Amino acid sequence: MTQPYAEVIGDPIVQSKSPAIHGFWLEKLGIDADYRATHVTADGLADFITSRRGDGDWRGCNVTMPHKQAVIPLIDRLDPLAAKVGAVNTIVPEGSELVGYNTDVPGFLEPLQPLLGETHYFRMARVLGTGGAARAIIVGLAGEGLVLVLAGRNPDKARALLEELDPAGEHHVAPLDHFADATDFAFDDREGCLDLVVNASALGMTGQPPLRFDMSHAPPGSVFYDIVTSPLDTEFLKAARAAGFRTVDGLSMLIGQADHAFRRFFGTNPPRGDADIELRERLTK
């Protein structure tokens, strides 16, 4: 008897924590299924999709770099949110079709939901980075009514990204190095406001250059969010905590997006709440 399975594809793929997350949930729920990591190169992507179409045990796959946009022409239909983001991180067979979803948006927003559920006079996010991950973050935050300051090495690319993803929004762009040096800007009263500072780049990741951000650019009461997962406690987050700011780490987004994918693969909700503590311990050993 064959076993149903899902997987994550990417190039490279060895660093993915997705098999550990989904495997933990399958084990907790006693579901007889597998979740694996599969190395798929750009040249092999089309053949991979073709091979999975006829596999009755396949429940779908997560898609990581560098395939989140390249898979779009190879599948049959996009969920409206994935179409808006212009990136797919989850593919699920539905009937005779392969459907592309983006669970990065709800995954990113999940740890912010208690804050987003409050009423604010004003909401602003400084988003650092204009790569693939930034697309889901821009769409998610703009949809929650935040004014964005998008910072990138190339401000023209940042502006084009905002115009593509939220053309009606009154957003701003800045060069990334603007935030590296101290400012004496006097912030107005932030009572009743929501301020986020988000690292949406790979800067600060193991093997990458550091993210240079001077804390004087953060309004009082800001929440710092880093999507990097290796290391989990980045220098960016350590500096923010030392300056008295609240922080959210990259594992929060990773577990949140996996939750939405798991439901589509296996037809049930994963165990959360207290189980998240055990899962985090397993992932950070």
Rank of each mutant, 00 (worst) to 15 (best):
A133K: 06
A70I: 00
N102I: 00
R135M: 02
A82F: 00
V92P: 11
H120N: 02
K68P: 10
P111Y: 03
V92F: 08
E110N: 09
A125Y: 02
T64N: 13
L81N: 09
D104I: 12
D79H: 06
L74M: 13
V92E: 13
G86M: 03
G95Q: 12
G132F: 00
N62K: 11
P93N: 12
K68V: 01
L112T: 08
E97T: 08
A87T: 12
M124W: 08
L98Q: 11
N102C: 03
Y121I: 12
H67N: 05
L128K: 07
E94M: 14
L78Y: 04
R135C: 01
P80Q: 11
A133G: 14
A136R: 14
A83Q: 15
V127R: 10
I75F: 06
G140F: 00
V99W: 03
H120A: 08
M124V: 08
E110Y: 05
G95D: 08
P73S: 03
P106V: 06
T119S: 15
P66N: 05
E118Y: 00
E97D: 15
A87L: 13
V88A: 08
D57A: 15
A136V: 12
A133W: 05
D104Q: 04
A83C: 02
R77W: 02
M65D: 05
F108M: 07
S96R: 13
H67L: 08
L109D: 05
A136E: 14
G132Y: 00
L78C: 06
L112S: 13
L81G: 02
P93Q: 09
V139C: 05
G131W: 08
T119C: 10
Q69L: 08
L109S: 11
T103Y: 07
A87Y: 09
A125F: 06
E110R: 15
G132L: 01
H120S: 07
R123L: 10
T130N: 05
E118M: 14
I72S: 00
G117I: 04
W58M: 03
L98I: 08
N89V: 04
K84W: 01
G60C: 08
N102F: 01
G132P: 06
W58I: 06
Y121G: 15
A133R: 05
L81K: 05
C61E: 06
G107I: 14
L116Q: 04
W58G: 00
D57I: 07
G131T: 09
N89G: 10
P114H: 09
Y101N: 01
E118R: 15
T64L: 11
L128S: 10
L112D: 14
V127H: 06
P114Q: 10
A136S: 15
F122C: 12
L115Q: 14
R135K: 15
A133Y: 07
T130M: 03
L74C: 08
L78N: 04
T119E: 14
A83M: 00
E94P: 04
K84R: 15
T64I: 11
W58A: 02
I137N: 01
Q69E: 14
D79A: 13
V71K: 13
T130K: 11
G100A: 03
I91W: 01
N102T: 05
K84H: 01
I75C: 09
V127D: 11
P93V: 09
P80C: 02
I72R: 00
V85E: 13
F122H: 15
V88T: 07
V99R: 12
L74P: 07
G117E: 15
A125M: 05
R77F: 00
P93E: 05
